[in-house]
Design a protein around this nucleic acid. Structure first.
Lengths: 171, 171
DNA sequence: TATTGTTATACTCTATAACTATA
DNA sequence: TATAGTTATAGAGTATAACAATA
């Protein structure tokens, strides 16, 4: 179960409980609830809050395999586009090449990927998943499926699709 | 003008140009375009891409006053809720108290806020904007209005509202 | 000259722990 | 004991610059 502010029960569950709670406690006890004021009109504010909550759930769910969102996206892209260069992967994901170089070192250390000399261009490395990487990715995908199930739990299947389709237009 | 991948012209502008562009160039020249594969089904992936793009635009637009998103949210909350404690502000925004303490030092150094001993509780500080802080915030708000105008430019007014309303349900 | 990959540095942000002073 | 605020440290992530090898 996922929640935005550490509350259990998801959005709808929390609303239900709040509606049921008698409004007799003094304000100081009920958690005073500050005015968000202008923040209410900023897409970026709510986008950030939700993004942080989702990444936290992702990291919590993927903790058994110790994989973070950026690493996951790199593994998926290498698996789906074998043989591409670091530059290509980095560009596609918006990861800076210096950062990607270090991340690939780490993935290489774990024996999940390998860099081979590229055929045509002596400068670039062709990236591949190893057999171990392929196996690890299967386990990782099982966990990300659980993460997405928790997203459905948090927002409801219909709202999740609506949000996904809306966001995809900008990605 | 804002864009997600450094392209100029916004989403709709880019689409228009792409539709006009003749499809005769070799794939290697056109920017190969990798498969996103499973990433296409993750809300978090697109959420993150958009959030990073929005924050970049925010920082670019607010650069003249050197204010970052988190600082802005703190200033807005202090202005709308004068006299509240650091703990209350931090809880409302999901900012860890250690981090908030340092951020408030910086805002105090710039003479935008002040901490007074709280009335009832000897442990906590009541936060207020100074007159200079109030004046600075007016200028800051003018720049955030420009930022939001750029958001409208990026996504269209209707889509921005739809996204805002959808996200607010989770904030 | 530009690009690919690498290393290094600085800065922001997050997560903790430890500490004080109050409650 | 718990809370409010502070300081310090370690780890990600981001932004740059500089460099060697290659195009």
């Amino acid at each position: 179960m996922v929640s935005l502010n550490g509350r259990a029960g998801g959005i709808r569950g929390a609303e239900r409980r709040q509606a049921r709670r008698p409004q007799v406690l003094p304000a100081a006890q009920t958690e005073p609830s500050l005015k968000l004021a202008e923040l209410n009109d900023h897409v970026g504010y709510f986008l950030r809050r939700l993004q942080v909550a989702l990444f936290k759930d992702f990291m919590r769910t993927l903790a058994p395999v110790d994989v973070r969102p950026a690493q996951y996206s790199v593994l998926i892209l290498i698996a789906a586009n074998p043989g591409r260069s670091q530059a290509a992967i980095g560009r596609a994901l918006g990861i800076e090449r210096a950062r990607l170089a270090r991340m690939l070192h780490e993935l290489e250390r774990r024996k999940w990927i390998e860099r081979r000399a590229a055929a045509g261009d002596g400068r670039s490395h062709a990236l591949f998943l190893t057999a171990a990487g392929d196996k690890a990715l299967a386990r990782i995908k099982a966990l990300t499926a659980r993460h997405e199930a928790q997203m459905v739990d948090l927002m409801g299947s219909k709202r999740r699709m609506l949000l996904l389709e809306l966001l995809r237009e900008f990605g």
